[in-house]
Design a protein around this nucleic acid. Structure first.
Length: 468
RNA sequence: GGCGGCGUAGCCAAGUGGUAAGGCACGGGACUGCAAAUCCCUGAUCCCCGGUUCGAAUCCGGGCGCCGCCUCCA
């Protein structure tokens, strides 16, 4: 297999990749709903999209990446309440929906940056594009794909012959049991809201006037409207979680292909699998790891989480356990340690020796982004006895453009990171004892510090200490 | 119930027909006053049963187990 091959959900197979337009690749990634903090599982979509971008870049493509921010219209559980996640969060916290959106957007952007994701060219918010969403709904209405009921304007899925195709749905199975809480007047369970009307007597923080009345856009609409706005009516790759295949992406496709008579609207649909937390309740109350900050508190660097991500294939569920993340943290530190040994060493590399590793790394990534296999090649290089330091660094630096692990700048965890008069003094005392051969005394001080989480390391450059 | 995925050494995880990548842990060694840190070495025939094949972890059938979706969770 030569050249870049990517798995396409639309066709359920890997395909040789080529962009619609020269060497320019346009990507749209379904982004976060910013009503609460994004936990580490929520970060996988962006680590995946970033890996995709970096591989495309390494293959010589120019990439335009758009990520949306859902700050309205994502409904909570029961449809009849008409409340969306932003409104609910605002009500609970007593703050405005806008403030909440801003806070969690900022936090999410920061977390993405910390795990080494490159900035997208465009971050677009649903609330900034209500006009475009209304225009798209009107277009669908004009073409006869919609019907209006008390609750709002709905897309009539029966009008779109290919509706079930993308997710391979069995629509007849859905016919039977109309669910509790389903909207009265909906003709088919799969039909979905393009525009939701604010219920009579209700005052929403986020609502807009529309041809159908005051209300807010349905969740699926934003991705269609904004991707068209920034990427055009056809583009190359749309990414998201596997959970979006049957509903969200199916509906996006229905809306867009009907509105613009395009097919396929998007060439490649790529979906990352979930992280499996092994039934552990991901909640703060039980003390389980939840946010990136929680990992950091435990001494796991954000980039170690990226390393963890790279150890498994994006289309495979990845098991997250304390042991697994700890293993990744140690593995990452050691890889950085290996890099530091050769960092910046220059020399004349043997192109033949480099070529073999370079090809294997590239082949792995070209095979539907097989990062685990590529990472294994990086380890082989790091530990190779046949390569000179200059050759190892040359390859590692090159690989890191794709891996994004900051092998050029990361610091080893063994370095003392702080100074503290009291601890420094105790360390000096121990040194004195050691010089005098009073090892019992020296060991006693070491044990004492260890009890409070201070680890002492006797390195070539002298004694250092760090917190466990 | 329907649909999809998975089950590889203690753990995480590649490999999808030709005799099992990589990381972590464990054990051994080097280093150390002893440790720690670091570096080096070391481990599996692939859930079970049957079948196809010269040959299967890889294909087919059956079983057991786990996960996801079908409810606007990445």
């Amino acid at each position: 297999m030569t050249g870049l091959h990517l798995y396409n959900t639309r066709l359920r197979c890997k395909q040789s990749f080529s962009p619609l337009e020269g060497d320019h690749v346009r990507i749209y990634s379904c982004g976060p709903t910013v009503y609460s903090a994004q936990h580490i599982g929520n970060l996988r979509p962006y680590l995946f999209a970033d890996l995709l971008r970096r591989v495309l870049r390494a293959e010589g493509y120019r990439v335009t990446h758009v990520i949306n921010i859902t700050d309205v219209g994502h409904l909570v559980g029961e449809v009849e309440t008409g409340e969306d996640k932003m409104e609910a969060a605002a009500r609970r916290s007593g703050r405005s929906a806008g403030e909440i959106a801003e806070q969690f957007t900022r936090q999410w952007r920061e977390d993405c940056r910390r795990v080494g994701c490159l900035d997208a060219q465009v971050y677009c918010k649903a609330t900034d594009h209500v006009e475009q969403q209304i225009a798209l709904a009107r277009r669908l209405e004009a073409k006869g794909y919609t019907y209006a009921i008390d609750d709002g304007l709905y897309f009539d899925t029966s009008k779109f012959g290919r509706y079930a195709e993308f997710a391979r749905l069995d629509l007849s199975a859905q016919e039977g049991g109309s669910r509790i809480g389903d909207v009265p007047g909906k003709r088919h369970p799969a039909d979905f809201a393009l525009w939701k009307l604010t219920a009579p007597g209700v005052r929403r923080q986020q609502e807009w006037d529309s041809p159908w009345g005051r209300g807010f856009p349905g969740w699926h609409l934003e991705c269609s409207a904004m991707s068209i706005e920034y990427l055009g009516q056809n583009f190359d790759i749309h990414t998201g979680g596997v959970d979006h295949i049957p509903v969200h992406h199916t509906n996006e496709i229905a809306q867009t292909e009907c509105a613009y008579d395009v097919h396929p609207w998007v060439n490649w649909w790529m979906h990352e699998e979930f992280i499996d937390f092994r039934g552990d309740k991901m909640s703060k109350s039980t003390g389980n790891i939840y946010l990136l900050d929680d990992l950091v508190e435990r001494g796991v660097k954000p980039l170690a989480y990226r390393y963890f991500f790279l150890q498994a294939h994006y289309r495979q569920q990845q098991t997250f356990t304390d042991e697994a993340i700890e293993a990744a943290a140690i593995g990452y530190d050691r890889l950085v340690g290996q890099a530091i040994e050769v960092r910046g060493v220059s020399g004349k590399p043997d192109p033949e020796k480099l070529g073999e590793f370079r090809e294997r790394f590239r082949a792995a990534m070209r095979d539907d982004l097989n990062a685990p296999r590529a990472l294994a090649v990086a380890w082989e290089v790091a530990r190779s006895r046949d390569l000179s330091a200059a050759e190892r660094w040359s390859l590692l630096a090159e690989f890191d453009d794709v891996l994004g692990l900051d092998l050029a700048g990361a610091v080893p965890r063994t370095a003392a990171s702080e100074s503290n008069p009291r601890i420094d003094a105790r360390v000096a005392e121990r040194e004195g004892a050691r010089r005098d051969g009073r090892f019992g005394e020296a060991d006693r001080i070491r044990d004492e510090l260890a009890a409070e989480g201070i680890v002492i390391e006797d390195t070539q450059e002298g004694v250092k200490w760090r917190r466990r």
